[in-house]
Design a protein around this nucleic acid. Structure first.
Lengths: 145, 145
DNA sequence: TCTTAAATCAGAATTTTTCTTAAAAAGTAA
DNA sequence: TTACTTTTTAAGAAAAATTCTGATTTAAGA
């Protein structure tokens, strides 16, 4: 089954055109496992799409977020990063290197949102963030970067 | 007991001077309940400290984060915001207006970090993010911002 | 194929954050 | 206090991230 089917349907449903750039950006983010920023995705796309503009990557990812195709997340810096996995999962964020690492925690994922939160508004999704130091940076020890 | 005692001790422990600006920034962030950005804090401080620079607010808050006096969080935008509450609690983030609202969820707060996460690194703290639409924006209905 | 609205590119503009440097303030010792 | 040393600050410049503007190109339906 075509991996672009989800994109095709989402765009059609919203009356948005399926362009070459959108397909390539979709493929790139959907195959990423490191929650890349726009800048990083842009650099990965350039070999294939030498004339693509940074702005197109920004606009397209914002659109993907609005369509629910990807999620926008933040790590240690004020830089938007994108997560192709829209299912319920969680993130470990490294304070040193900024890595964002996925993990599962069914005990939390399966809990219902408690009643005392209902009055805050309508919840779309829930995720846990663990902030700390990743294995790699622990080994390096001390402060880096 | 002096509300600035925590600041005094943290700075002393790190060999950092206690200045007028640091005291005022500390008092301002510690009394805030809306997770303000640097820009917002700066505007709140200006009436009292007309010559303070934005850069001082940035530097000081970064220092407070490193000392563990406050936490840095992100909501819907790529703008750093600061949380004076360093105890375990969670956030509801409104996609519309960007509000960050505190809530408690003891069932999660009291869970131990699961074993399959140990190998990811050392965890300093954990928090849940609920992303959705706050009560106020629900009432307004439709897209706003 | 033609038409037209939508999308893209390139560069400029904005916004957020950090850096540089000279001046001011804080701590120390006489 | 005064003189000396070091840290901190303010101001503006610089850098980084994101969004906007306007001309050109493209997708998709007639």
């Amino acid at each position: 089954m075509d991996e672009l089917e989800e994109l095709r349907r989402a765009l059609e449903g919203a009356g948005i055109r399926l362009t070459h750039q959108r397909m390539e950006i979709y493929k790139e983010i959907k195959s990423a496992r490191d929650h890349p920023s726009v800048e990083v995705l842009y650099e990965r796309l350039r070999p294939r799409l030498p004339t693509i503009s940074l702005d197109t990557v920004y606009r397209t990812l914002t659109m993907f977020v609005e369509l629910g195709l990807v999620k926008r997340v933040y790590g240690k810096d004020p830089v938007a990063r994108y997560d192709p996995d829209t299912s319920c999962h969680h993130h470990m964020i490294c304070k040193e290197c900024g890595a964002i690492i996925d993990f599962d925690w069914p005990d939390v994922s399966e809990l219902p949102i408690p009643d005392n939160v209902r009055h805050l508004g309508q919840v779309e999704y829930m995720q846990v963030q663990l902030v700390g130091t990743c294995k790699k940076c622990q080994k390096k020890g001390g402060k880096k970067r």
